[in-house]
Design a protein around this nucleic acid. Structure first.
Lengths: 212, 212
DNA sequence: CACATAAGCGGACTATGGTCCGCTTGATAC
DNA sequence: GTATCAAGCGGACCATAGTCCGCTTATGTG
């Protein structure tokens, strides 16, 4: 398990959460914890019922029975709320590639692990593309600032280095992750009608060509 | 030259412009043309003076001396306005790879042309990353709906097919273009501090590995 | 020139993400 | 139990993208 790794259950807005030092801050007040749960439940519910894009922050606050200020104090912004709703899935994915069985987890050769990573990410996208699109931070330089993104980045970078110490690992990591962006995925799936297996095969091919 | 190819000088919002049938609609009224020029000049000016992200649509309308309704009637939305401001650069780029000298234009082998395309795109991004970020359509399936994007996509797809008829050209095209997204570029340049030559080298490597 | 008409205009209006700040309350100390 | 006070709360408020619709006007016609 990786419970001290950067995920987004922190009290702080994602932008400031970075690498939270666990156990430093005093525990959150009981009412705060209660409201956080209420908000997450309301968001989960409304997202599922009406669609992510059609659910306003006001509606979530109302459904949760809290003020708007409370919602934003807890979660910072809409993107971070989306990420928070995804948190459990995100953790499962992280656990899978950090400590799960090979080829996703440790033990397999790096190229195999990268292929498995792509496949797991594509499954994750298939299940959560709306939330992930919402969670993709916008604006200058915000792309990589969410903990889940950073985490994946470091993971892929490590595998790329291991597979091919001679190539530009940072650049290659950016490419491999940009190919798995939610905006790209949605376009492939919905606009171009490519099926999931095709995307997995394409990604596998990409990894093998780029690093094989 | 490629003056009848899809660019964004059409009267219609980009979403509906698609492949405009030239000369079908009657010419725009004189006041409309004047206002369009005013708006473009105002936008260009304010974007340069205050930065793209800090310039509101209201401010542009005010600077141009037109009502907000006029601005939105002309350009549809903020992303399309950004694209319209970029139009001349975009055309120059298109002309370069459609009819310019090789290796960017016709005459060189497809892999060379793809490498040259990447280099030209990176120069374009270096000069215009803010506007291009603004122009990257947001929301479900909007990624590929702008004429410049579509156009690049078809160009790259053709070259990929030519270079490697045996691989999934559509998927590969998505990957090659996602690596050149403005959000990715800005992150690489500004957050990670990678220089332009490094990005060009990385892209060249990617193309050669993926298709070589 | 007078008229008809559709294209164009503009600003009031709406929706919504996000901020602010005075009031409330849970946790702690005594 | 009472006092203290920072953490937390909530809704009024703000900024801004985008819509709507009644008024204006350029343009083609006779």
């Amino acid at each position: 398990m990786a419970t001290d790794l950067p995920t987004i259950d922190s009290d702080l807005p994602v932008a400031e959460a970075g690498l939270p030092i666990v156990g430093e801050a005093r525990p959150e007040r009981a009412d705060a914890a209660r409201n956080r749960e209420r908000i997450l439940a309301a968001a989960h519910d409304l997202f599922a019922r009406n669609g992510v894009a059609c659910t306003s922050m006001d509606a979530i606050a109302a459904e949760a029975g809290v003020g708007k200020g409370t919602l934003f104090r807890r979660f910072g912004d809409r993107a971070s709320l989306a990420l928070a709703v995804l948190d459990s899935d995100e953790r499962a994915l992280q656990d899978g590639f950090l400590s799960g069985p090979p080829p996703l987890g440790p033990g397999a050769p790096p190229c195999h692990r990268l292929v498995a990573f792509g496949s797991a990410m594509l499954d994750h996208l298939e299940a959560n593309s709306d939330l992930m699109l919402e969670g993709e931070a916008r604006g200058r330089g915000r792309l990589t600032e969410s903990p889940p993104y950073r985490f994946r980045w470091l993971h892929v970078q490590g595998l790329v280095r291991e597979a091919r110490p001679d190539i530009d690992a940072d650049y290659t990591t950016d490419v491999l992750l940009s190919a798995l962006a939610a905006s790209v995925f949605i376009n492939q799936r919905e606009v171009r009608g490519m099926d999931l297996d095709r995307l997995k095969a394409g990604y596998e091919d990409l990894v093998l060509r780029a690093l094989g």
